[in-house]
Amino acid sequence: MINEVIINLLYIIAAILFIFGLKMLGNAKLARKGNLVSAIGMLIAIVAALVSNEVLEWQWVAIGMIAGSIVGAIAARMVAMTAMPEMVALFNGTGGAASLLVGWSEYQRYVSAGEVLDVSVFSLLIITVTVLIGGVTFTGSIIAWGKLSEKIPSKPIQYPGQQIVNVLIVLLLIGGAVIFAPLREMVIIDSYALLISIIVLSCILGISFVIPIGGGDMPVVISLLNSLSGMAACAAGFVITSNVLIVAGALVGSSGIILTTIMCKAMNRKLTNVLFSGFGSGKTQSGP
């Protein structure tokens, strides 16, 4: 419909606004303006996406956006000042879920067109990465939300051999991805079952990864999950070959890692301690 050059220009403008917005968010005086700048960037990106392609399912885009706006706005308005960090965790989870769904839907596109057997290894691998990171972000964020709001006991939940179970899940996931991506001779049904197992395993991994971490460390974990959701968006960008997703996702992913380490330092903790030991339950700080 509209010239492709103009669409891409809009995406570039959006990316620039994200960069400035993020920079300004780190400065006390400019932070609120920075948030607005990045919101305008988002609006431009959405408009560009809406006019770029022949969206055939307008009614569904509209329904999704209107319903999502209502839910998001009400949640952001109603939440108590003290409960904001856990609300951020929930929003982060929805972002992860969305990336997962984008990857899945792209796979469904291949299945519907009967093209799964012709898809490149790269495409299938990147779909796997997208649903994996998206799934971990989704359930991990929900657990973080539960722990902060005390819906789940905020103290570390541990059992013997927990690390081994986690490693096993990761190995299973890697194995699944390795089989999933290159096996083109696979019957579509088998391939689909494998994708679903990868999605389910990723969701389990998100839970088992956050559950042994104490509530006191949740802000750091949410920051890390935020970085992950950026990477999920970035991976989704590879799936649909969109530069703006890759740029914005990578910005959030890498700046999120920096922010996570800054937060760790401010709390006088090491990231590895936060992730792999059950400290920080709030009452016993037996760290060095």
């Binding site: 929003f91 972002g95 969305a98 935020n226 950026g230 968006a233 989704a236 649909i240 703006v244 922010l259």
Partner: peptide
């Protein structure tokens, strides 16, 4: 704020 930016996946959606 950066979490909101990761919502860019809406474009993908």
């Amino acid at each position: 704020g950066s979490n909101a930016i990761s919502g860019i996946t809406v474009v993908g959606a």
